[in-house]
Design a protein around this nucleic acid. Structure first.
Lengths: 136, 136
DNA sequence: TCATACTGTAACTATTTTTATTACAGAACA
DNA sequence: TGTTCTGTAATAAAAATAGTTACAGTATGA
């Protein structure tokens, strides 16, 4: 993927959890993250698509969590946010005339899938509520 | 890190294991990977620094494994190759005036460290020999 | 009903990161 | 002593990422 998506999404979700149902707009969130509001809105669009947040358009609008933070686990967030494999994905095709080059993409993908599964499993053991509770 | 480093390093190590002690030069390796030979030499320099390969300069030179592939595990390779945290690392500092912004970097880093440890543990359960044996 | 303040999205620009290229000194070899 | 490598630096090109501008559509309330 691109790791900052996950950071930004988690930052957003944490903010939304902290304010308990209050609507936050993209400008406010962007100031906390210190990034562009459009980037926040794009990230929110993705979180919305995956059912983590609800948004309200128009004046006084903003976003809020669509479910209880205890029911959101970080592995699910990771999967929702993920765009491409964490490892892997070189831009050049290895040489098909080389026995190693011909097969390595598949072998690497298998390896990466397994490794990433282990990572996601770890993340899945934590809820947003737990993560958010660490902030005082 | 930058995931292609790991892919390239593993590709190199696999090639070196396949030819069992024969010296391979960076040009040959680069053709299999389909990348620039200088990139291969840089990657080899790092693998050399971490004791995975030996190199011989001069005419007829090249590289070879510095130890038995059964004694190289993929978690160690990952750690040798890793340059920065897999997740995390956004380029802007979150807002220190926001309670969430002020603390999130640390919280994210802790989270990422644990998740990455799970991933490395998975990789560590596999040796280069096993990986390389998958190629026929 | 109209000004205001949002979201959602697209198009474009800027910045940063990654990869490729060029170049060359020094090593080993025949 | 010419050739073929490594090792490394400097630079250029390409790709990925983030930021900006712009604007249509939606809700709000004076």
């Amino acid at each position: 993927m691109n790791s900052s998506h996950f950071s930004i999404s988690l930052h957003i979700l944490t903010l939304l959890d902290q304010v308990k149902g209050q609507l936050l707009n993209s400008e406010y969130i962007a100031r906390s993250i210190n990034c562009n509001p459009v980037l926040v809105r794009k990230e929110l669009a993705n979180l919305h698509k995956h059912g983590f947040v609800q948004s309200k358009e128009g004046k006084g609008g903003g976003s809020t969590l669509a479910k209880n933070s205890a029911d959101i686990n970080l592995g699910d967030v990771y999967r929702a946010v993920k765009q491409k494999s964490l490892l892997g994905g070189s831009r050049n095709e290895p040489n098909p005339d080389c026995p190693v080059g011909r097969q390595i993409t598949k072998h690497l993908n298998d390896l990466y899938d397994e490794a990433e599964t282990a990572l996601v499993k770890n993340l899945s053991s934590k809820t947003l509520q737990e993560f958010s509770a660490g902030f005082k």
